[in-house]
């Protein structure tokens, strides 16, 4: 185990002692899961009706209500949550951007979530999404025992999930730690990630360098993930374009997350690694302070 990685994991684990996984809200144990979620799902506990939309499961149409109101409506049942957390760590090269705190924040947050899960008596499994999505060796143990983590992949999580569909536990809470920097429709990734999940948390980890752009001038950009080099004249227009592209990208992810009921939050690595004050994640309903 890389000594640096171990130190970062340990930092995160220590920071995680203050937190627990905030959702789903625990009510009672069910058939498949140990707890019930506030989300609508497939448990036997009826929660509410809603209007039918194309694509809904026809088996859930409340025909009695249709007979009364002449409107198609769907019965919503409280979802069932398994008290297991799958922590998926994006291990592409961009997560280890040199001279930033991105690597430290990624490893730290992975350890923090594992500790938070443990604090809530959840089991957890740590995964690394490299060229393929694989379990981290000893990923169900304490983070300091995790082995084989490497940030050398040059593919995005979507491709990683597609190459070998991870055996995430059904009804588990899935936490994706990534900068989300790959091209493609976020729905595709979320579709895989949310399939069979009881809750999905997307934690976007960015570095200050991803947000604060270089001063205007001629810049030779090195893509730390693909190794591509590109010469650019960065001026006000280019900087504005970059911000607009990033905002669009985040907007796409936010929209996709809303569709899939996932929760997305963005953290800036350099701002969290010193004190591990994760107020944004607490307010965002991802963590709770114990």
């Amino acid at each position: 185990m890389n000594e640096t990685f171990g130190r970062y994991l340990l930092d995160g684990q220590r920071a995680g002692t203050r937190y627990g996984i905030a959702i789903p809200h625990t009510i009672q144990r069910g058939l498949f899961g140990n707890e019930l979620s506030n989300r609508s799902g497939s448990s036997l506990e009826f929660m509410d009706h809603r209007e039918y939309v194309v694509g809904d499961d026809l088996r859930r149409i409340d025909w009695s209500a249709f007979a009364r109101s002449d409107k198609l409506s769907i019965k919503l049942f409280r979802d069932e949550v398994n008290s297991h957390v799958d922590i998926i760590l994006d291990c592409s090269g961009s997560m280890a951007l040199e001279n930033t705190a991105k690597l430290r924040a990624s490893l730290g947050l992975a350890a923090l979530f594992s500790q938070a899960a443990a604090n809530c008596d959840y089991t957890f499994t740590a995964w690394q999404a490299g060229d393929t999505c694989l379990k981290i060796a000893n990923g169900a143990d304490r983070p300091v025992l995790w082995e084989g983590i490497s940030f050398e992949s040059s593919v995005g999580c979507e491709e990683s999930f597609r190459k070998s569909v991870p055996a995430w536990r059904r009804r588990s809470i899935r936490v994706l730690l990534s900068d989300l920097f790959w091209m493609g429709d976020p729905s595709a990734t979320l579709g895989i990630l949310a399939d069979g999940a009881s809750a999905v948390f997307i934690i976007q980890i960015l570095a200050e360098r991803d947000l604060n752009l270089p001063r205007p001038g001629n810049i030779r950009l090195h893509d730390c993930e693909t190794g591509r080099v590109e010469d650019m004249f960065v001026d006000t227009v280019a900087r504005e374009q970059y911000r607009r592209n990033l905002a669009n990208h985040q907007h796409n992810w936010n929209r996709a997350c809303r569709r899939f009921g996932a929760v997305i939050a963005t953290v800036v690595a350099e701002r969290i690694v010193e004190q591990w004050a994760l107020d944004d994640l607490v307010l965002g309903g991802v963590l709770k302070v114990l």
Partner: peptide
């Protein structure tokens, strides 16, 4: 060195 070139 940047995380990605996609936004440029």
């Amino acid at each position: 060195y940047v995380s990605t070139l996609m936004f440029w």
